[in-house]
Amino acid sequence: MAESPLSDSPYEVLGVPADADAAALRLAYRRALRTAHPDTGGDPVRFHAVQRAWLLVGTPEARAAFDRGLRGPTSAPTREAWAPAAPRRPRDSRPLARSYGHPGGLTRELYLARMREWVGRGVEVPDPYDPELVRRAPRDIRHILADALTEEATARALSTLGIAYTVWHDVATDAAGPGLPPKLDHLVLGPTGLFAIQSEDWGGPVAMKRGELVGEALGGERPFRALAARAKAIGRAARVKPTALVIVVPDEYAAEPLEVGGSVRGAVVALVRSSRLASAVREGLPGSAHLGGTEVMEVRSRLQAVVRFA
């Protein structure tokens, strides 16, 4: 199970309450293992999740450690996994992409505000990233934190593109998604095109279908439509056209590393795994227009003149 605020707890994976006794836990594990086993037509991803859940709570020692939030090879994440990471110096001297803005900053502000609202006015929240508190929060609040983490992971990947690329994070736009702040997560410009990128973690698998994402976890959202609206608002102001619309999700939620799904207003749309993003941008998406050196400079100047940060 991924260290995501939206990941099911081991008890949820096994289908038992957190206070289930050892016998009930063992019975639930055996049933879940039997129904999820690939040899009997089960889902390999689900089978792995059941095994992982048992490692976390299958013995009295492991269960006690998990319930206390202790960290180990098979334990739950500590608050450091979800709190803002301290800046780190690059390990080598290779030039990084030029980056502007604060990735995940506005999303984290929204998370903190919603967490305080949920806990209650006047109630002190000593640590809003405490794993026990996060697990008890409503799903929509955990979703906001999961998105912030994904935005930060995307920013780290994009920083490795090199000096030929310019990246803007948290770009303000008047086109917002449902329950989300009015911003585009990432805008990337380089010789392989102008990419409008949204980082998302819905806590479940998604797939491309007729130029849009589908999946139970989406809850009726139309992510590419929302992304296209954000990109259009920025492009109109700068008099430029994005060449690609990209949604990035954690690796385990996309069946393919890169899935292209047609185009919207001339921009290729693609679903990309987080680990594949940097190479996808460097190589360019299939069918997406590349830009010449003079064109890149002109587009950068236009964007720099209009980009504002959320």
Results as ranks from 00 to 15, higher is better:
residue 196 A to G: 08
residue 19 D to H: 12
residue 65 A to Y: 07
residue 108 R to L: 15
residue 14 L to Q: 05
residue 187 L to I: 00
residue 152 E to D: 10
residue 179 G to F: 07
residue 96 L to C: 08
residue 185 D to P: 02
residue 209 K to D: 14
residue 15 G to Q: 11
residue 266 G to S: 07
residue 250 P to Y: 03
residue 39 D to R: 14
residue 53 A to L: 05
residue 55 L to S: 13
residue 34 R to N: 12
residue 105 G to C: 07
residue 14 L to H: 07
residue 278 A to P: 02
residue 60 P to H: 11
residue 285 L to E: 11
residue 89 R to E: 14
residue 87 P to F: 09
residue 160 T to L: 12
residue 156 R to P: 00
residue 176 A to I: 01
residue 184 L to W: 01
residue 208 M to W: 04
residue 231 A to V: 06
residue 141 I to E: 01
residue 49 A to P: 03
residue 174 D to K: 13
residue 65 A to Q: 12
residue 305 A to E: 11
residue 59 T to A: 10
residue 58 G to F: 04
residue 252 E to V: 15
residue 49 A to T: 07
residue 211 G to L: 05
residue 290 H to S: 15
residue 288 S to T: 08
residue 113 A to P: 13
residue 249 V to R: 00
residue 95 P to H: 11
residue 143 H to M: 11
residue 268 V to E: 02
residue 194 L to W: 01
residue 178 P to M: 06
residue 102 H to W: 12
residue 42 G to L: 01
residue 257 P to I: 02
residue 71 R to W: 08
residue 53 A to C: 07
residue 11 Y to P: 00
residue 140 D to A: 12
residue 216 E to N: 13
residue 7 S to Y: 05
residue 225 R to K: 13
residue 190 G to V: 01
residue 89 R to K: 13
residue 13 V to G: 03
residue 175 A to Y: 03
residue 298 E to G: 13
residue 63 R to A: 11
residue 109 E to M: 15
residue 24 A to E: 14
residue 165 Y to G: 03
residue 255 A to G: 12
residue 92 D to F: 13
residue 13 V to Q: 07
residue 150 T to G: 03
residue 195 F to C: 01
residue 126 P to R: 08
residue 132 E to C: 08
residue 233 A to K: 10
residue 167 V to A: 03
residue 106 L to A: 14
residue 244 A to R: 04
residue 103 P to A: 10
residue 75 S to M: 12
residue 121 R to Y: 13
residue 67 D to H: 02
residue 31 R to N: 11
residue 263 S to H: 12
residue 14 L to C: 05
residue 247 I to T: 07
residue 221 E to L: 10
residue 179 G to A: 10
residue 126 P to N: 10
residue 107 T to R: 03
residue 217 A to Q: 06
residue 52 R to Y: 12
residue 24 A to G: 13
residue 253 Y to M: 09
residue 80 E to D: 15
residue 254 A to P: 02
residue 34 R to L: 14
residue 255 A to K: 15
residue 296 V to H: 01
residue 44 P to Q: 09
residue 162 G to K: 02
residue 101 G to K: 01
residue 66 F to M: 03
residue 11 Y to K: 02
residue 138 P to I: 10
residue 277 L to Y: 05
residue 136 R to K: 15
residue 263 S to P: 05
residue 136 R to W: 11
residue 202 W to S: 03
residue 155 A to R: 00
residue 298 E to C: 10
residue 11 Y to Q: 04
residue 134 V to R: 03
residue 270 A to F: 06
residue 270 A to R: 03
residue 50 V to K: 04
residue 183 K to T: 08
residue 281 V to Y: 04
residue 29 Y to R: 09
residue 127 D to Q: 07
residue 181 P to V: 09
residue 61 E to L: 14
residue 119 V to G: 09
residue 96 L to Y: 05
residue 200 E to N: 05
residue 265 R to V: 09
residue 47 F to D: 10
residue 105 G to Q: 04
residue 68 R to P: 06
residue 154 T to R: 01
residue 173 T to D: 04
residue 119 V to Y: 06
residue 3 E to H: 15
residue 129 Y to L: 04
residue 226 A to W: 12
residue 212 E to I: 00
residue 265 R to W: 12
residue 158 L to I: 01
residue 187 L to N: 00
residue 58 G to Q: 07
residue 303 L to C: 08
residue 162 G to F: 01
residue 93 S to R: 15
residue 137 A to F: 13
residue 67 D to S: 11
residue 199 S to M: 05
residue 308 R to E: 09
residue 156 R to T: 08
residue 173 T to S: 08
residue 254 A to R: 02
residue 231 A to H: 06
residue 255 A to Y: 11
residue 182 P to Q: 04
residue 28 A to W: 06
residue 77 P to L: 10
residue 224 F to S: 00
residue 133 L to S: 10
